[in-house]
Design a protein around this nucleic acid. Structure first.
Length: 416
RNA sequence: GGACAGUUGGGAGAGUGGCCGAAUCCGCUACCUUGGAAAGGUAGUGUAGGGUAACUUACCGAGGGUUCGAAUCCCUCACUGUCCA
């Protein structure tokens, strides 16, 4: 959630930043209006309530002293009617404000380039040079089928489209990748955590998936529980409504989970292969950080993800997202895109974001900042998406006969 | 699925209608004491909002209700524990 106090204090700056993100000026003005309205409603309710409280106290004294209370009772009863009206007004204002505020995205950092969509993203650097092929490289689904690693038809049989099944070395490689990534992240100071795959509404509101993106989530039929779209949700919300000691910061965590996404609106995109699945494996990084340290940690997280790709000998590039491509909660995002020779293009394999106070304010994650309590910064990033990493290994390491060489760093994980 | 018990501040734990935002203990912070420390003493110590301030509003699992007034009484729900199937 954006800082409503700041919006009041400096409407011009705040609104221009939100407009950069593509938020309607009208909506922002409405937000300001509502928040002023709420403030007024609160003030008048509280004045009335204070009066009621003091009269009620008097009431007690009167009774103890045996005085006549009928006049006092009349006044108190009259005030009660007015109070309930004021309370009603306040509640409505509160609700309306919340509805708007919760659906407004984070403001981008000033150094994030302005742009409409991914075509305006800026490439920061390339790491490793793609290999030269003496033959036409195949796409991963062809290799997957040829090697018997992944079965797309049987995934559909078991569930529906965009599900797949891994077999043999394909399945073992997935497991090896998960272990390798977790160990790697741990070596960079991220503590391993194992979290639930189902979370409640509050958690998803905390990280920003709700209320706006309910259509992308799998919801349990009779319960207010959802399958996680990313481990970012449970990891970040571990500290929901908590006040951390400043010595505890930063809290650096990594977790492996399955992720579940309906991919609503992705119809027709990446329908082949395992680039866009409804269920996929991912190893995630989340940091709860001191505000002063979040830029530094952001770089560490990007570096961590990039170094995993380098260790796996996968060519990739770093891309800074423009305002139009930035996610709902992010103030700044760097995507890592891995080279896929079969597709002859770079594809996203990791996305590292600094949400600054946005999620902290929603999830009420604070820390003791000397005497007072302040919002932490929260950061998240994939390190990495496992399925896509497997895809990248297949396409980059394919031989002319369709066989695939195993990256050296994974061999110990495969007993090789 | 059923029965009973519980959910209070950083922790333990009291509080059955007004003097309770909440006793007491522990912890924590500051000061005093000391050559230094321990012990002891004194003061302070929840969160969020409004106000220059005095001060004020809300919060005792969540939501509703009764009442002039609710941590306390009533209802619903969630969670925890114990027992039963």
């Amino acid at each position: 959630m954006i800082d409503l106090k700041l919006l009041q204090k400096d409407f011009e700056t705040m609104s221009s930043k939100l407009i950069r993100k593509g938020v309607d000026l009208e909506l922002i003005e409405k937000l300001r209006e509502k928040s002023q309205e709420l403030k007024k409603a609160k003030a008048s309710f509280e004045t009335l309530q204070a009066l009621q409280n003091s009269m009620s106290k008097e009431f007690g004294t009167y009774k103890r002293e045996g005085k006549d209370i009928s006049e006092l009772k009349r006044r108190v009863d009259a005030n009660k009617v007015v109070i309930s009206e004021a309370l009603e007004i306040q509640r409505n204002a509160d609700l309306e404000l919340e509805t708007i505020a919760m659906s407004i995205p984070n403001i981008p950092d000033d150094d994030v380039a302005h742009g409409a969509d991914e075509s305006d993203n800026e490439e920061l650097k390339k790491v490793l040079t793609p290999r030269e092929f003496s033959f036409t490289p195949k796409e991963h689904w062809e290799l997957a089928e040829q090697n018997g690693w992944i079965d797309f038809e049987r995934g559909v049989k078991l569930a529906t489209s965009r599900f797949s099944v891994s077999f043999g070395m394909g399945a073992r490689l997935e497991r090896a990748l998960i272990n390798f990534m977790l160990d790697f992240n741990r070596s960079r100071g991220f503590a391993e955590v194992s979290v639930p795959a189902l979370v409640n509404r509050t958690a998803l509101e905390g990280t920003g998936q709700l209320p706006k993106f309910e259509d992308d989530l799998y919801k349990m039929q009779d319960l207010d529980l959802f399958l996680i779209p990313t481990a970012e949700v449970p990891l970040t919300n571990l500290f929901q409504d908590e006040i951390l000691a400043s010595e505890e910061l930063p809290v650096k965590m990594t977790a492996y989970t399955s992720c579940f996404r309906k991919e609503a609106g992705a119809a027709g995109r990446d329908t082949r292969g395992m680039i866009r699945q409804h269920q996929f494996h991912k190893v995630e990084l989340v940091t709860i950080s001191h505000p002063d340290k979040s830029d530094e940690i952001f770089s560490e997280m990007v570096e961590c993800a990039s170094d995993i790709l380098t260790a796996l000998e996968l060519p990739h590039r770093l891309v800074s997202l423009c305002t139009g491509d930035l996610g709902f909660s992010a103030a700044k995002t760097i995507d890592l895109e891995v080279w896929l020779p079969g597709q002859n293009t770079y594809r996203e394999i990791s996305s590292v974001s600094n949400t600054r106070e946005f999620q902290a304010r929603r999830a009420k994650i604070r820390f003791k900042d000397g005497k007072k309590n302040s919002m932490v910064h929260t950061l998240n990033g994939s390190a990495l998406a496992v399925g896509r990493t497997l895809v990248a290994i297949m396409e980059n390491n394919q031989q002319e006969d369709g066989s695939i060489t195993i990256p050296e760093v994974l061999k110990p994980y495969l007993g090789m």
